[in-house]
Write a protein that binds this DNA or RNA. Structure first.
Lengths: 219, 219
DNA sequence: CGGGACATTGAAACGTCTCAAACGATGTGG
DNA sequence: CCACATCGTTTGAGACGTTTCAATGTCCCG
């Protein structure tokens, strides 16, 4: 019952990939481009192959909660089958495939192996969501940000110690359940303690992996 | 592509239910009974038909984070396929079915309709997890507790305004990301404002549904 | 009846939030 | 080419609310 996994990322075989390509339409993502809005009728699922997307919820007060950041090989729009319950917006330029729900359902019912991969995928997202819950449980802003950076490092592994943070500080704040200002201060704090160094606003360099790891593990 | 849903709860047909019963073993849940531990090899999925279970993660510091409370018709143990990444413990007495992963996988591959129900179920859990994220985003303890009570009311609808809260205050705190004391104070606060009244520790009575709803919606 | 876990309440300390102001990059029009 | 407007970011100071620590109270089960 073990699928072809790689750090939680499901791998499709050539046939499956080709099958999806056939029903999907390629989408060129532009920064800030909206893919769907909360409340829209859900008629497609999306798969990213390049770039970054955020899934978020708009609150009556105008505040936002970012539920997840999605990157290459992620699937989204699946979490809500009648209507979308989140909105999705591109954070950077990139490429995504739009898979019409109708046809996708047909394929999934025929190819139980492929459907199983989808089940894996959602299961994995649920796991991620739980990790987020653990992260939010921390009370200290620097700790949360450290976990976030570690998470991004793991997800977007570059081999070295450079961690891309394509999203804005506000987005990070909306994801971590902090105010924008707290994120800034937390970043400054981590830098002051020589754990990470920021290169511009969208790259973090882990300067002391061991101590950062210790901070992350200090729950 | 719309499944037979009822407020997010997937309904299985008689054949499917019977199929699962055949491979499953009935489990009599006792309060505090452990179903599995984080790190154990995952060899079964569980379905509750009665009672309440919590899924939680133990942190190095000894603190706990409750990822979810599970009730009748919920499925759990699915979120982690190689090894369990959470622990699960019964909160009350009840009944659950243990579905061995091996046989379940066989059935799912044969019955793509049933597998689809499982996909729905996990998808629904992911949605729930997002709602939790929104709840945690609130900074005020009374607001969080109000949302929690509203959530429980919706999930365990009793028709009237009585809301069962089978779990302990600590569990609620571990779920909401608050300290035990804050939950108590929040409860006292809601009671002082005449929004809900507590009958013992495990029943909340919504005395002013309109104002409670307004507080819940004040995000 | 007593023990132990759970729950409640009080008082002080800490850290984030909010409000406000300055800073930096970016892009447009004079 | 520069002034200027705009957006996102950074930094500062005070207020608020939760956490923590500690003591007391309550329920449940042997």
């Amino acid at each position: 019952m073990r699928p072809d996994e790689d750090g939680g990322h499901v791998r499709l075989n050539a046939r499956q990939r080709e099958q999806l390509m056939r029903i999907g339409t390629r989408l060129r993502l532009q920064p800030r481009m909206r893919l769907y809005e909360e409340g829209d009728e859900a008629n497609a699922v999306y798969a990213i192959t390049e770039g970054a997307v955020k899934s978020y919820r708009e609150l009556p007060s105008g505040k936002r909660v970012v539920c997840a950041f999605l990157f290459e090989r992620d699937l989204f729009g699946l979490a809500e089958l009648g209507q979308y319950v989140n909105s999705a917006q591109a954070v950077t330029a990139g490429i995504a495939y739009r898979l019409p729900l109708e046809e996708l359902a047909r394929i999934l019912k025929q190819d139980s192996e492929l459907q199983f991969q989808f089940l894996m995928k959602v299961t994995h997202e649920l796991r991620e969501s739980h990790r987020r819950a653990v992260m939010i449980n921390r009370k200290d802003a620097p700790g949360r940000l450290a976990m976030f950076i570690a998470m991004m490092h793991q997800r977007l592994s570059t081999g070295d110690h450079r961690v891309p943070l394509p999203m804005s500080r506000s987005d990070i704040a909306a994801f971590l359940g902090l105010s924008l200002e707290s994120v800034c201060r937390a970043a400054a704090d981590l830098e002051r303690r020589n754990l990470v160094k920021f290169e511009g606003r969208h790259v973090a360099i882990i300067t002391d992996p061991a101590r950062l790891a210790r901070l992350v593990a200090t729950l």
